[in-house]
Simulated assay, not measured.
Amino acid sequence: MRGFRHFGMMFFCLLVFMGSTEAQLQMGFYSSSCPNAERIVQDYVNRHIHNAPSLAATILRMHFHDCFVRGCDASVLLNTTSSNNQTEKVATPNLTLRGFDFIDKVKSLLEAACPAVVSCADIVALVARDAVVATGGPFWRVPTGRRDGTISRSSEALNNIPPPTSNFTNLQRLFANQGLDLKDLVLLSGAHTIGISHCSSFSNRLYNFTGVGDQDPALDSEYAANLKARKCRSLNDNTTIVEMDPGSFRTFDLSYYRHLLKRRGLFQSDSALTTNSTTLSFVNQLLQGPLQNFFAEFANSMEKMGRINVKTGTTGEIRKHCAVVNS
């Protein structure tokens, strides 16, 4: 009897282990169900990203914003279909996201090749990586097997996506909520080495930092004066765009971190990285090493981020259209 119980317990544990491993992301998840899936994504990105290279930054940002709300489940792609439920897409942090049509086109190609097999969540993760690589940035592994979520709430985007006005305490809390540490914070912030921002994301630093018409003293005065004179001419400028990494915003390099040490990080959240000894030490370590070290470390943090609260196995669904849940 004891032997039978022992065997039964071992069998139960084996079932649990098998279930847990089956639910994990894996490299080449679609090798049997859709063998050309990753090649289809990569080929489309390589053919079209150079027509709009700025999309590399915005789709990378889309991936980041998606993962920070309900995990990496493509909930950021869902359209609002009822006044009772405003989705993440219309939340303030996501109003400037672009590239939804790019994702939709990739999805249509995959649906034609392998209907109802490849998730929108995996498409976002793969496109983000392939677009960055195609424009000269680092490569990182993208294990697949994510499934798509069916819930998307604008309030959750507001509560979970780190705003550009974040101080260090807020950044640390929001990243820790996702299982990301201070090193990840520094590395993922390095994505600001490419792309642009609207003045509205930082103009309070120029014109009304504490609510009395003042300027953020942590911002280099010469840089601030240049932004006021040539770019953001008023507090309420919602249309002008500014390079996040001046002079190098199309190149994935270390100059973003050099700007931080010169007090020229565009956002308050950028500047916050220099207010903590641990994150400041990480910044200095990156600058003292070769670019390849940054690429390798960034790759590790991106793969880690891409695993946040993923839906796998039978959780969620494989959407037919990325903007709507299946009926």
Rank of each mutant, 00 (worst) to 15 (best):
M302D: 05
G211F: 07
S108Y: 05
D216M: 02
S301H: 09
A121L: 01
F209I: 04
F4T: 15
F294P: 05
S189A: 15
P115F: 07
L261S: 09
M27C: 02
L188D: 03
N309P: 03
R61Y: 11
L219H: 10
F175Q: 10
F209L: 01
V132H: 10
L95V: 00
Q178L: 04
I318W: 06
A37G: 11
V133P: 12
V106L: 07
S269Q: 03
G289T: 13
V69Y: 06
F252S: 11
I40K: 00
V142I: 06
L77N: 11
V142E: 09
A131D: 02
T21P: 02
M18H: 11
L260E: 02
S197G: 13
S108G: 02
V127S: 02
Q178S: 14
T150S: 10
H321G: 06
T251C: 11
G137T: 10
D220H: 08
T275M: 08
T58L: 03
F168M: 15
P115I: 04
V133L: 10
S166K: 07
L78C: 05
L174Q: 05
Q285C: 06
S203P: 11
W140P: 13
S83T: 12
Y30Q: 09
L182M: 15
N226K: 09
L55Q: 12
C199Q: 01
T275F: 03
K105T: 13
P138A: 03
M10N: 12
S82L: 04
S221F: 02
I59G: 11
Q215T: 15
N85E: 13
I103P: 08
N159P: 06
K107D: 04
A176G: 04
S108T: 14
L185D: 06
R129H: 07
D73K: 09
T315C: 11
R2H: 12
C199E: 04
L174A: 10
Q288H: 13
G213Y: 04
R47N: 15
L185M: 15
F282D: 08
S200C: 01
R233F: 00
S248L: 06
R2S: 12
M10A: 15
T278Y: 09
G306D: 07
A272I: 07
N159W: 00
L180N: 02
V186G: 09
Q172E: 13
S255C: 08
M27D: 08
T314V: 14
F102V: 00
S271I: 14
D148H: 01
L77C: 14
R250S: 13
F139T: 01
N84L: 07
I194Q: 12
K105N: 14
P93F: 01
A112W: 01
L171I: 13
F100I: 10
H259E: 00
I196N: 00
G149S: 03
T135I: 01
N238P: 02
V117I: 14
L14M: 13
K228G: 08
N208D: 15
I59N: 02
T169P: 04
C322P: 02
A52D: 13
N36Q: 14
V242D: 06
R264N: 11
L254I: 03
N284P: 12
